[in-house]
């Protein structure tokens, strides 16, 4: 019987076994030293063969197409992945474009342009509109400040969840001539209860400084903009988002959910 299992080695190596057979072979592998050695030998004999092949030139434009494919087929799309159609710019410029557009959300033209851009992906479109709405709402509250300058992103960073919770977000530092502004947008966040808020923290040497709080809509989307006036000289290391039991906390009570280095 054992012998029979050893016969699967070639097909296992070539990925031809069904999931079930593959798992059974792996179980067998743990007990069969011969197979372990043999598999190791096959790996060793084949692993550097490609290094002896003449390298051929990939077709033109493949890089953009491949990376584009990865971004547009990402199962967890985020609004950073917008790319202008037929753009000669590398796909990564989409990140900047999205951030830039979001950061001038006050400008009414943005809405039109945003929708044009995001029409490439309806899912994204919906999420973006939500995020944008949340930001516009926030900015309406500060309308008396009359921003006329065009903001440009000085720094952008993806907010990364500290555990597998599906939360995503983005932090952008922009400046429209009136001092740096931190813009945080998130999506896929879990619902808040009671007085709970999401709180943004700028962190320097492990000391968090409260930098705006926000609530989310029914789709888990939200965001906040925060004027960093007078504090920009400080060397912020990272930005983080936590869930706090109430607004106005000077120190985080809840645990950090999203974080990114700046």
């Amino acid at each position: 019987m054992e012998n029979k299992r050893c016969d699967y080695l070639i097909d296992y190596f070539n990925g031809l076994l069904s999931e079930n057979d593959s798992r059974q072979f792996e179980q067998h592998l743990q007990q069969c030293e011969d197979c372990q050695k043999e598999l190791q030998e096959f790996k060793a004999l084949t692993e550097d063969l490609p290094l002896h092949m003449k390298q051929v030139d990939p077709p033109e434009g493949m890089k953009d197409r491949v990376l584009d494919h990865v971004m547009t087929n990402d199962p967890v799309p985020s609004n950073q992945f917008i790319k202008k159609k037929n753009s000669k710019l590398p796909i990564w410029s989409g990140v900047l474009a999205a951030a830039l557009l979001l950061s001038v959300g006050v400008n009414i033209y943005t809405t039109v342009e945003m929708q044009q851009l995001s029409s490439e992906n309806e899912n994204l479109n919906a999420q973006l509109s939500d995020a944008q709405l949340a930001i516009s709402e926030l900015q309406e509250e500060q309308e008396d400040e009359e921003d006329t300058g065009v903001a440009s992103p000085e720094q952008t960073a993806s907010l990364v969840p500290l555990e597998e919770n599906g939360f995503t977000g983005m932090a952008t530092v922009t400046d429209n001539g009136e001092g740096p502004e931190l813009l945080v947008q998130v999506q896929n966040m879990e619902a808040l209860h009671g007085d709970e808020v999401y709180q943004v923290w700028l962190i320097e040497e492990e000391t968090p400084v409260a930098s705006g709080s926000f609530v989310i809509d029914e789709h888990g989307v939200g965001g906040v903009s925060y004027h960093m006036s007078g504090e920009m000289e400080q060397n912020w290391e990272s930005v983080a988002v936590s869930k706090e039991p109430q607004p106005g906390n000077e120190q985080p009570e809840g645990e950090i959910l999203l974080e990114s280095e700046l």
Binding site: P50, M53, K54, Q55, V56, P58, M62, K63
Partner: peptide, 8 residues
């Protein structure tokens, strides 16, 4: 890795 992987 583009060229190496593509060649393979």
């Amino acid at each position: 890795y583009e060229k190496l992987l593509y060649s393979l």
